[in-house]
């Protein structure tokens, strides 16, 4: 009894610290070993939420054949937010719903980030009104400019101000928030300068909010990516846009044959050249380009012409760098741009 007690005391005074020390050593080993262990390769993608569904689909297909060995993460920081990370070299691939801007090219150049630019699909920015709106049958680009330019703020407030034949009722505007690539591209094409827009409209980064708002309001007018219009046809009406050659309604055909112009836009991915040297990223990008046409159609966008995908894959293989969207490229046909020479 006494011995047992003494033994207990010994255990309490020497045994516990020793056990704790051993445990600490073991845990230290675990942490060190985990820090040194090489995990599976990680490919980081970030950027546009518009392009997200296509990238998600491409990743899904690619990973089902490589599960466990290659990990791909996709974030949705928006085109602008994504480019900030991409030009710091933090991400491998950038999803963009508009071409890279001048400032972003400069940022990339400063950090020594060079990139491949690859088109993956078309989107048609769709001008929509509520199904209850009975008077609009088409709208011209000039009228859109008069509605959305910064000087229209607090002055163009009624439908009759756009076209005298339209009723004298309030005009309620809905559009993309200023962080989205949709906003950048729309303002560049319609107003003539990226990010130049009136501010007194209902802005949301969440396109479903815009769908709800426009569908419920007879006096509403807004712009949306085509996929959001297509899935809400019973509540929204697309307004044909007249760019000088007669009104043209957005549809797969008019976008693919180039008549829905200039509000159709290319969706692009940018691949960091240093990342492109890694074989798993090379394989992923090639499989992305190979499947993009089919996947784009599945998730609500328009596929590019087949030869443009071939051209893009060729550019990627031959290591062509830089952007084709130089000065005033918005509105030019994408395929023409990609056939032109590129400069890094």
């Amino acid at each position: 009894m006494e011995f047992a007690n003494r033994f207990h005391n010994v255990k309490a005074t020497i045994g516990t610290p020793a056990a704790l020390l051993l445990l600490a050593l073991y845990l230290g080993w675990v942490v060190l070993a985990s820090l040194q262990a090489d995990g599976p390769a990680v490919i980081t993608v970030d950027g546009s939420s518009t392009l997200f569904p296509i990238t998600e689909a491409a990743v899904e297909e690619f990973q089902s054949s490589h599960r466990g060995r290659i990990r791909i993460t996709v974030g949705i920081s928006g085109t602008g937010g994504g480019f900030k990370k991409f030009c710091r070299g933090e991400t491998d691939i950038q999803d963009a719903s508009r071409p890279i801007s001048l400032g972003e090219r400069e940022a990339c150049r400063r950090n020594g980030v060079v990139y491949h630019e690859l088109p993956v699909a078309y989107d048609a920015m769709t001008i929509v009104v509520s199904r209850r709106n009975t008077w609009v049958d088409s709208i011209t680009l000039q009228e859109l400019k008069r509605i959305w330019e910064p000087s229209a703020q607090r002055t163009v407030l009624r439908w009759s101000q756009i076209r005298p034949a339209w009723p004298d009722v309030p005009l309620k505007l809905f559009g993309a928030g200023s962080d989205s690539g949709t906003f950048d591209y729309f303002t560049e094409v319609v107003v003539g300068r990226a990010k130049a827009s009136r501010g007194d409209y209902t802005a949301s980064e969440d396109d479903n909010t815009l769908v709800q708002g426009i569908a419920r309001d007879t006096y509403a007018l807004g712009y949306l990516p085509f996929g959001y219009y297509e899935n809400n046809r019973q509540r929204l009406r697309a307004v044909p846009v007249d760019a000088g050659e007669g009104p043209c309604e957005p549809s797969r055909e008019t976008v693919e044959n180039g008549t829905y112009h200039p509000l159709s836009r290319p969706l692009l991915i940018y691949v960091n050249e240093r990342s492109a040297a890694r074989p798993e990223i090379r394989r992923f990008v090639e499989s992305y380009l190979g499947a993009a046409g089919r996947l784009a159609g599945e998730v609500g966008f328009m596929p590019l012409p087949d030869d443009l995908y071939r051209l893009a894959a060729e550019h990627f293989r031959s290591g062509r760098l830089g952007t084709v969207f130089h000065a005033k490229a918005a509105g030019m046909s994408v395929i023409d741009l990609f056939r032109q020479d590129t400069t890094p």
């Binding site: 990743v59 993460t73 920081s77």
Partner: peptide
């Protein structure tokens, strides 16, 4: 802090 929205692993 950059939580991701798509992860398939």
């Amino acid at each position: 802090i950059g939580a991701l929205s798509f992860i398939a692993f």
